[in-house]
């Protein structure tokens, strides 16, 4: 199809839309003076990234992203904001510090990364469009997690358990009069 005189495929159009949503809301995350709105924009950013995962042939990762990041992490951050309601006031702690210096450093970093990406030689002979030849779907993820990567997989579950118990212990209110 043709958009604004450019010949692009539907996938490219989807990529441009998703990347625009992702980057636009990411910019709002760092610039919003109200921290609650920044957290909500983080949810939108993560949804856009889930869409990008779909474009990269990783539907399982997209579902995981929506469930864990959009569903759990964003909710947890919003709950933490509610638990300490004074963060929500637009005030001193929400201010933007040293924007010029920070923008310069970030732009320099991007320039470095972009020059590296643009000047690298990528494999040119994988041009045929179509679905992936090898299985990279949910079945392959399950096989990979339970066969070659089973030890890190089990280790990750132990890490999660330790982290959750630790989080409860840290956040628990200390009441000295309790038995």
């Amino acid at each position: 199809m043709t958009v604004l005189g450019f010949e692009i495929t539907g996938y490219q159009l989807a990529f441009v839309v998703l990347a625009g949503v992702t980057l636009g809301s990411a910019a709002m995350v760092v610039l919003m003076p109200n921290i609650l709105r920044a957290a909500l924009f983080l949810g939108l950013t993560l949804l856009g990234i889930a869409g990008l995962y779909v474009l990269m042939n990783a539907p399982f990762l997209a579902a995981v992203q929506v469930m864990i990041y959009v569903g759990a992490v964003t909710t947890m951050i919003i709950l933490a904001i509610f638990l300490s309601h004074r963060f929500m006031q637009v005030g001193f702690t929400q201010a933007i510090y040293n924007p010029v210096f920070a923008f310069g450093a970030a732009a320099l970093m991007f320039l470095f990364l972009f020059i590296t990406v643009a000047n690298s030689v990528w494999v040119k002979d994988i041009t045929a469009a179509g679905p992936a030849q090898t299985d990279v779907g949910t079945h392959a993820v399950a096989y990979a997690l339970l066969q070659p990567y089973v030890f890190p997989f089990e280790l990750a579950s132990v890490v999660l358990l330790v982290a959750l118990v630790g989080a409860v212990t840290i956040a628990k209110e200390d009441r000295p009069d309790e038995p």
């Binding site: 980057l23 921290i35 990234i49 933007i96 970093m109 991007f110 990406v117």
Partner: peptide, 21 residues
């Protein structure tokens, strides 16, 4: 897109003083 997202996050890390931000 990944590089841009990284740099936006880097910018946010440098300009925010609110720990949740």
């Amino acid at each position: 897109v990944g590089a841009l997202l990284f740099c936006i996050g880097l910018f946010g890390l440098m300009v925010r003083r609110n720990a949740i931000g």
